[in-house]
């Protein structure tokens, strides 16, 4: 027998998810690019994030904006995913990855400094990486604190450290 028939809730969830994806797909791409570095890993992480965002539709109560919610789910999934890496290496794939789900766009016309930024973000610790992504996408200290679950003052300290690291790297590269 096939699965149970789809309920109204399922179709409603699919509709909401479709709207979210149409409007905020870029967030998922950014998180995937910042946390996974090989094509196969990016496919895996993208699929995992998509599924978690889709599952999270039911839990969304509108207390935060949709981009904030999607960022929150995507970052949580990405950080959990990086901790699963050793399991992946032992051949225990949690998901059957659908090949070709994520495509890589041509870099024509793209500012090369975007890749530079990603390289610098990749050198940060997991939590600082999340803070950096949110900072660059214009989230306030308060929003970042709520998403990550730390105090605003702690966010301030982390951001100062990230800024110093980026400025230091920029200066170092300018000298050489």
């Amino acid at each position: 027998m096939n699965d149970e028939p789809m309920t109204m809730l399922d179709s409603e969830r699919d509709r909401i998810f479709g709207d979210w994806l149409a409007g905020h797909k870029g967030i998922l791409f950014k998180v995937v690019h910042a946390y996974a570095f090989e094509h196969a890993d990016r496919q895996d992480l993208f699929q995992e994030i998509v599924i978690q965002v889709w599952r999270s539709v039911d839990a969304f109560r509108g207390e935060s904006s949709v981009p904030t919610w999607i960022y929150r789910v995507a970052l949580n999934t990405a950080i959990a995913w990086t901790r699963k890496e050793d399991r992946h290496q032992r051949g225990k794939q949690p998901l059957a990855v659908v090949e070709g789900l994520l495509t890589t766009s041509s870099s024509d016309g793209r500012d090369p400094r975007v890749e530079w930024l990603y390289r610098q973000i990749a050198n940060l610790k997991d939590v600082d990486r999340s803070v950096a992504l949110l900072l660059l996408d214009g989230f306030s200290y308060k929003e970042i604190a709520a998403i990550v679950g730390v105090t605003e003052s702690n966010v301030g300290v982390k951001i100062n450290r990230i800024k110093s690291a980026l400025a230091g790297k920029r200066a170092e590269e300018a000298e050489s």
Binding site: K30, H33, R110, D137
Partner: peptide, 16 residues
């Protein structure tokens, strides 16, 4: 931030 936002017009990835 401006550099970062520039990727919105030209995303690094696409989805099938």
């Amino acid at each position: 931030m401006e550099v970062w936002r520039s990727q919105d017009a030209s995303p690094l990835h696409g989805a099938n």
